[in-house]
């Protein structure tokens, strides 16, 4: 257990491991995303009430689900970096922020486009949408806060605290559709039975959620690799890497 912990703290080991994971995970992810999009766009029946506009669900829900899950990753990495001063946790925290921000942006934009034909409006200040907007600002806040500090050790600490404080927003997003009944519909998929979605729509949706998780993993690893190279550019192993290119 401790050796694994130490290995994860080793930049060259993490760099090589992520490289060998990305070699097969990245093409697989792209294939899964394209297949899932084609499935959702062309091979599923339309919703009996919303017609074809509901097809946005296959990108909107996965993006939102993974944007939320990404926040956990960032906050946990932030906690590890605060408690154990682990540099690679700091790298992971910083690598998550742009990925999470992009996914939250996708969830908001696709939700807005879906809202126009379904609700008749691009935007409402409903609890779910507002709390997702706050999530976007939290991600952007972590990015901006890191850039604002000249001292990067201090920046990492401030970002970790911000991401931990921001976790109060996560249960609010989850529960918002139940607490405040508004335009946004409640969850259709539940772990504890009572899923209110037809299998012909559920399977492509689950497929896309898995594909978005895989995409998140790929982006996280790519960002971590870029960050590791920048931080370690003075070390012998990175110089060997640059010379061999």
């Amino acid at each position: 257990m401790w050796t694994l912990f130490h290995k994860f703290g080793s930049p060259p080991w993490l760099y090589r491991l992520s490289g060998s994971i990305l070699r097969w995970l990245l093409p697989l992810t792209l294939l899964a995303l394209v297949a899932g999009a084609v499935w959702g766009l062309l091979f599923t029946p339309p919703d009996f009430r919303q017609g074809n506009s509901y097809r946005i669900i296959y990108i909107h829900v996965p993006a939102a689900v993974v944007a939320l899950a990404g926040y956990y990753v960032m906050a946990i990495a932030g906690a590890i970096s605060l408690i154990w001063r682990m540099k690679m946790a700091d790298v992971a925290m910083r690598a998550t922020a742009p990925v999470g921000a992009a996914l939250t942006f996708v969830a908001l934009v696709t939700g807005s486009i879906w809202g126009k034909p379904t609700w008749g409006t691009w935007w409402v200040w409903d609890a779910r949408i507002t709390s997702m907007l706050i999530l976007l600002f939290l991600y952007l806040g972590v990015i901006a806060l890191y850039e604002a500090y000249e001292n990067k050790a201090l920046a990492a600490k401030a970002c970790a605290v911000l991401s931990l404080v921001g976790t109060v927003n996560i249960p609010i997003i989850y529960k918002s559709v139940d607490w405040w009944y508004s335009l946004h519909q409640p969850a259709s998929i539940k772990f504890t039975g009572g899923t209110t979605i037809d299998p012909s729509m559920l399977y492509p949706l689950l497929w896309m959620i898995v594909a978005f998780y895989a995409l998140f993993t790929c982006c996280l690893l790519l960002n971590m690799r870029a960050e590791i190279l920048e931080r370690e550019s003075r070390t012998a192993w990175v110089r060997r890497l640059a010379a061999g290119e």
Binding site: A37, L41, G51, N52, R55, H60, V106, I113, P117
Partner: peptide, 22 residues
């Protein structure tokens, strides 16, 4: 898509652009 095509396809297009950028 019975009038919804512009919404659906633009949502997918924007998503594709963002994902490639990521």
């Amino acid at each position: 898509m019975d009038g919804h095509g512009a919404f659906v396809w633009s949502a997918y297009a924007i998503t594709a652009v963002v994902l490639v950028g990521m």
